[in-house]
């Protein structure tokens, strides 16, 4: 299996507060890897450090065998690691279509961008209906679809999803995970950061459990779902 992303001994601190105490993990090509843990365990810090929004104190991030530690966010995105940020964060004053066009910001192949946008519209007919509306006027679920669609238009090598189910009604949560599953089935590599451990473990191939800035457990998702400690702490 090809290693796409490799994290070694990553340490991050905010002033005196240590957020990540040297974590290491890997994401292989075509895998869905989940990072689960409680609020404040360091999940979002991890994903934002990978994206270049936070500078690590030490450690290394390798992507396709290239050291990208400390790269600026736009360079990381250009390299093919695309984050769908927590809370969706669609660009409210832009229309649905413009949001998708911003997803393809780094691409120049106009004709193919158009195809990809149409593909997003095919996948999410509701977005197609509303393509002329301001993104800020969409419902929470529609915004999550738009955020996902926007990431797909970027043609990422690795999609990093930060808490995609957060703040959504249970019915919508199922829908979002169905979409993530369909993206997985297309062969995309996904790093999924999720508080909803049950859902995350259902969809993941491999998972890491973060507790207070350290990886406590890891293993194939199927195994972790049987693990007593995890069941007690996260699935109970």
């Amino acid at each position: 299996m090809t290693t796409l992303l490799q994290i070694k001994e990553l340490q991050v601190s905010y002033g005196a507060i240590i957020a990540l105490r040297g974590i290491s993990f890997e994401v292989h090509l075509g895998q869905v890897v989940s990072l689960i843990g409680a609020n404040g365990a360091g999940k979002s810090t991890t994903i934002n450090t990978l994206s270049g929004l936070i500078k690590p104190r030490s450690g290394q991030v390798n992507f396709e065998d290239q050291d990208i530690t400390g790269w600026r966010a736009d360079r990381v995105t250009r390299r093919g690691l695309v984050q769908v940020p927590e809370g969706r964060q669609v660009i409210a004053p832009l229309t649905v279509r413009e949001n998708l066009e911003m997803g393809a910001y780094l691409r120049r192949d106009k004709a193919e961008i158009e195809q990809d946008i149409q593909a997003v519209f095919d996948r999410f007919p509701r977005l197609k209906e509303r393509h002329h509306q301001k993104a800020g006027s969409l419902s929470g679920g529609e915004q999550q679809m738009l955020a996902l669609g926007r990431a797909l238009v970027a043609r990422p090598k690795l999609v990093m999803l930060d808490e995609p189910s957060m703040g959504l009604a249970p019915l919508l949560v199922n829908e979002v995970f169905a979409i993530i599953r369909s993206i997985k089935e297309e062969g995309k590599t996904i790093l999924l950061v999720e508080q909803n451990a049950r859902k995350a473990l259902e969809i993941a191939d491999y998972a890491y459990v973060l507790e207070r800035g350290q990886i406590r457990h890891h293993g194939p998702a199927d195994e972790l779902r049987q693990n007593e400690a995890i069941i007690k702490a996260y699935l109970g």
Partner: peptide
């Protein structure tokens, strides 16, 4: 922040 995540 969102802009930079889109590669801007």
């Amino acid at each position: 922040r969102v802009a930079s995540l889109l590669g801007v």
